[in-house]
């Protein structure tokens, strides 16, 4: 059951990321819903669930991208693990705090990715921050915050979290 849910989640996320979101690009950048999903699963499910989903999602998303496999796998895996660790030590997370948290983690993940990818000489650090990392972090924060708020206000997320943690 768990594997089926995760496989469906991954297939859905990859389809949305590669087909739907490119039509919603702002300044040539789209949010990374894989990163948001990994953060949410890490927060609610725990560090190992976040790590495993991050590794799997990073790997499969990189099959449909020119980015190398290792960077995507390791970055998303680490994000899931860190989200899980954070989730273990936080009792309550307000949507506004979650937005800031996603903003920060997306910035860090983006900078690490920029450092690890073998980009061309035109794509220097300043370009990476200005053209990809910062706009994507803002979009991730907005999309992640909206999703979290939806879960928090409509689906009684606090009960979910307490159930998962017991």
């Amino acid at each position: 059951m768990k594997m089926a849910v995760l496989a469906t989640l991954i297939a859905g996320l990859v389809s949305v990321q590669s087909i739907l979101l490119p039509h919603m690009m702002v300044w040539g950048v789209m949010p990374d819903i894989g990163l948001i999903a990994v953060c949410l699963v890490g927060l609610f499910g725990g560090e190992l669930e976040g790590l495993l989903l991050g590794l799997a999602l990073g790997w499969i998303m990189s099959l449909f991208s020119a980015a190398d496999l290792a960077t995507s796998m390791m970055t998303k895996g680490a994000v899931g693990y860190v989200a899980g660790l954070a989730g273990r030590h936080v009792v309550y997370l307000a949507p506004a705090v979650f937005v800031l948290w996603i903003l920060a983690i997306s910035c860090v993940a983006g900078l690490v990715t920029a450092a690890l990818l073998n980009l061309s000489d035109q794509q220097d650090w300043w370009w990476a921050v200005r053209a990809v990392v910062a706009p994507q972090a803002v979009m991730d924060a907005v999309a992640g915050g909206a999703l979290y708020w939806l879960l928090w206000s409509r689906l009684n997320i606090e009960r979910w979290v307490s159930e998962y943690r017991t």
Binding site: S18, I19, P22, M61, F64, S65, A67, S72
Partner: peptide, 14 residues
Amino acid sequence: VIGRDTGNWYRTII
């Protein structure tokens, strides 16, 4: 063409 790159770092089509 059935899709585009899943990331923001490269311009690709699938």
